[in-house]
């Protein structure tokens, strides 16, 4: 059995010095070694998207990446979306106001996916956003309010009313 190797991760702007076996996925390292349990695991084979995080700004399945691969990258998780404990990220705010979540298990994955996408593509339109949203599964909401929340967040991020 291979043993743990030291690893430095930058997550949400914080530095984590951890030691992991190479087989530790990024998702498990975030959850267990960094204590960032907002990133969820719903399938561990890449389909559900509950584990979606941003690595160097790009959405990835953290169940399909080993933690050691994230060395020297910048990782962003749901815990890193809000600017502080008073304010929410516009996507978080929109999900709250538009009832975009029920059980909340899929929610971190959707929030990270959308926040990452809208920050890069502020002018994205509905069809394009639907396509992006089809990356992840939600079992509770039927996606109706996820879409509404996303459109609302897009407007807010563009500074529209």
């Amino acid at each position: 059995m291979s043993s743990a190797i030291p690893l430095r991760l930058y997550v949400n702007g914080d530095r984590y010095e951890i030691a992991v076996e190479p087989r530790r996925t990024l998702a498990d390292a975030l959850r267990e070694d960094c204590g960032l349990t907002g990133t969820h695991l719903g399938c561990e084979h890449g389909v559900c998207g509950a584990c979606t995080v941003l690595v160097d700004g790009q959405p990835v399945r953290s169940c399909l990446m080993f933690a050691v691969q994230a060395e020297d990258t910048s990782v962003r998780t749901v815990e890193g979306l809000a600017p502080d404990e008073e304010r929410l990220h516009p996507v978080q705010q929109a999900f709250w106001e538009n009832h975009g979540l029920q059980c909340g298990f899929c929610t971190p994955g959707f929030l990270v996916l959308i926040a990452g996408y809208l920050e890069e593509h502020p002018d994205a339109e509905e069809a394009e956003l639907r396509e992006v949203l089809s990356s992840n599964l939600c079992r509770c909401t039927g996606y109706q309010n996820i879409l509404t929340s996303t459109m609302c967040a897009a407007r807010a991020m563009r500074g529209e009313p």
Binding site: G38, T39, W96, G104, L111
Partner: peptide, 12 residues
């Protein structure tokens, strides 16, 4: 219940 969950502070 939502503000905590959207921050990733849920406890499953």
């Amino acid at each position: 219940e939502d503000p905590a969950i959207v921050r990733g502070w849920g406890r499953y």
